[in-house]
Nucleic acid binder design. Structure first.
Length: 205
DNA sequence: GAGTAGATCCTCT
DNA sequence: GAGGATCTACTCA
C-alpha cells in the first residue's frame, strides 16, 4: 500500500451515515495500548446500530439510561457494555453527541500483541476463536466496561487506516445476528463481513 | 455438522 | 425478578 498509516479522526466518526461508517471500518486496524502492551487487529466484521429508530439498539424509542449513556456520547468514543453477565461488547460511537449511533466491532484479524491475547484468553496459537465474536474480541484486546466512554482519537484505544481497502466483492452484507428480540429490525442489512476471513463469526445470520 | 442448554451478572421493570 | 447486541460444551446423528 505504501501509505503512512493514519489515525482516524473526528471527521470520520461524526458523519451521519452509521451504516456507511460500519462498512468503511472493515479493513481498518483497531489498536489498544496500555500497561506498556500494544495489541492490534484488522477489523473484519461490524454491525451498525442506528439510533432511536432501531429496535435492536439499547437506545430504541429514546431510552437513555445509565447503561446506554455512552451511546449518546461524543463521536469517536467507545461504548463497552456487558452482555449475558460475562461478555464485553465494544462499540464505536458515531454521528454527534446525543444521537445514539454506534458500530459494534464483531471480529478482528489479529496483527500485533497476539502473545498477550493468548495470555488474556488462555487460548493457544492458531485458535481462530481468539478474536471471533464481540465477546472474544474484547477479552483478547483487554477491553472492559472500564474503557466505556473513552476517546478513540487520542489515548489508549484508537483505529488507524493503513490504506488497505477491501474490494466490493470481498464484502458481504447480511442482516444482524444475536438480536432475535428486535423483531422486524433484525432483518435490516446492517452487518458487514469480509468474505473468507477465518475470524468472521461462524454463527449463521 | 446441527441443535440446544447452561453459564452468570448487570440493567431495567 | 426477568431477560439480554454471547460463547461454549454437550448431545444426537
Amino acid at each position: 500500500m505504501g501509505r503512512v498509516p493514519q489515525k482516524l479522526n473526528l471527521s470520520f466518526y461524526n458523519r451521519k451515515d452509521v451504516v456507511l461508517i460500519a462498512r468503511e471500518l472493515l479493513g481498518k486496524i483497531l489498536i489498544t495500548q496500555w500497561d506498556g502492551i500494544r495489541s492490534s487487529g484488522r477489523i473484519v466484521e461490524t454491525e451498525a446500530y442506528a439510533g432511536e429508530m432501531d429496535r435492536a439498539s439499547h437506545a430504541f424509542g429514546g431510552r437513555r439510561t445509565t447503561r446506554s449513556e455512552h451511546l449518546y456520547g461524543d463521536p469517536g468514543t467507545s461504548y463497552v457494555y456487558i452482555s449475558y453477565g460475562m461478555h464485553h461488547l465494544f462499540n464505536v460511537i458515531t454521528n454527534k453527541k446525543d444521537i445514539p449511533h454506534g458500530v459494534l466491532i464483531r471480529a478482528l484479524d489479529p496483527i500485533e500483541g497476539i502473545e498477550q491475547m493468548l495470555i488474556r484468553t488462555g487460548k493457544s496459537y492458531g485458535d481462530f476463536t481468539l478474536t471471533k465474536g464481540p465477546g472474544n474480541l474484547s477479552r483478547a484486546m483487554g477491553l472492559s466496561k472500564l474503557h466505556s466512554g473513552m476517546s478513540l482519537t487520542s489515548g489508549e484505544i484508537f483505529i488507524i487506516d493503513d490504506g488497505m481497502r477491501y474490494k466490493k466483492d470481498q464484502i458481504i452484507v447480511t442482516k444482524r445476528i444475536g438480536i432475535e428480540s428486535a423483531r422486524e429490525d433484525a432483518e435490516l442489512p446492517y452487518r458487514f463481513i469480509v468474505k473468507g476471513n477465518p475470524y468472521v463469526s461462524a454463527k449463521k445470520s
